[in-house]
């Protein structure tokens, strides 16, 4: 992870980027993120003008469209507060993807400044705030999906450390855990056969470990896998890491 990233402030004021998926579909994951951050003493600001990180168009190759959205995010999240995002994928977009598409743009500096302030939630909790274990209680066998855009970041070890430290919870290993779930943004609709085959294989591996819940730091992967499983008539229960952490606090009467 880039060593020049900005550490949290002493007053623990942060901004929340809820992500477009949580805005549209997964309200409770965003709510859990707020509750978890507040439990840690953070004051959470939510810039109302926020929309999306720009990744759909970036991955689609339409960098003009993507830059338009990223510029809007730079404006919306202006300032020097850390920006916390409950998604490894959106975080990677802001820390890495934007640097690529703004390489030759005059405002690369501002875009990078936002990238240095951006943290994926689990990474922020463990490496930003120094919280290594999680209190409360969560009964369940967790299959943890390592979403691909967290490769090379601190997120996966951070999330695993938190999840496995919760009383009552266990993290169940499963086969080929480094393989993609097949979502890939617009890939899922422009290559639907390949995408579905990848996801189906992923689900077979996960089911083999008989988890109670499938957990990830990215709702996008979970949306894909849950959607596939339900369509196939074998629904699986999914939760965002933030929801697990929040539920642990609730179960321990800490919230």
């Amino acid at each position: 992870m880039a060593s020049d990233r900005q550490l949290p402030r002493a007053d623990r004021r942060v901004m929340l980027m809820a992500t477009c998926l949580c805005d549209a579909f997964y309200a409770d994951a965003a709510r859990a993120t707020v509750e978890v951050l507040e439990h840690l003493g953070c004051t959470v600001e939510f810039p109302e003008g926020q929309t999306c990180c720009g990744q759909p168009a970036f991955n689609g190759g339409d960098w003009d469209a993507s830059r338009q959205v990223v510029r809007h995010a730079v404006k919306t999240f202006a300032g020097d507060l850390p920006v916390i995002v409950p998604s490894g994928s959106c975080a990677a977009m802001l820390t890495h993807g934007t640097a690529l598409e703004f390489e030759k743009e005059a405002d690369l500096g501002e875009v990078r400044q936002l990238g240095r302030r951006t943290w994926e939630l689990a990474d922020f909790i463990v490496n930003g705030l120094g919280v290594k274990t999680w209190p409360g209680r969560y009964e369940g066998r967790i299959a943890f999906h390592r979403s691909c855009h967290c490769r090379g970041s601190e997120t996966v070890p951070a999330a695993l450390a938190l999840l496995s430290s919760i009383a009552g919870a266990s993290v169940a290993p499963f086969g080929e855990s480094d393989q993609c779930c097949g979502f890939g943004g617009t890939f899922s609709v422009s290559f639907p056969h390949i995408s579905s085959a990848m996801g189906t294989l992923k689900l077979e591996h996960i089911r083999a470990s008989a988890p109670d819940v499938l957990v990830s730091v990215d709702m996008s992967c979970l949306m894909h896998m849950a959607g596939l499983a339900e369509k196939a008539g074998q629904p699986i229960r999914t939760q965002h890491v933030a929801q697990v952490l929040r539920d642990a606090l609730r179960n321990g009467n800490l919230l």
Binding site: F25, P192, S196, G227
Partner: peptide
């Protein structure tokens, strides 16, 4: 068409736009 490409093999989650806000 993009929607059909999705829904052929997956369900869509329930829309909760605006609920978090």
């Amino acid at each position: 068409p993009a929607m059909k490409a999705w829904t052929d093999t997956r369900t869509l989650p329930e829309w909760r736009g605006g609920e978090f806000r």
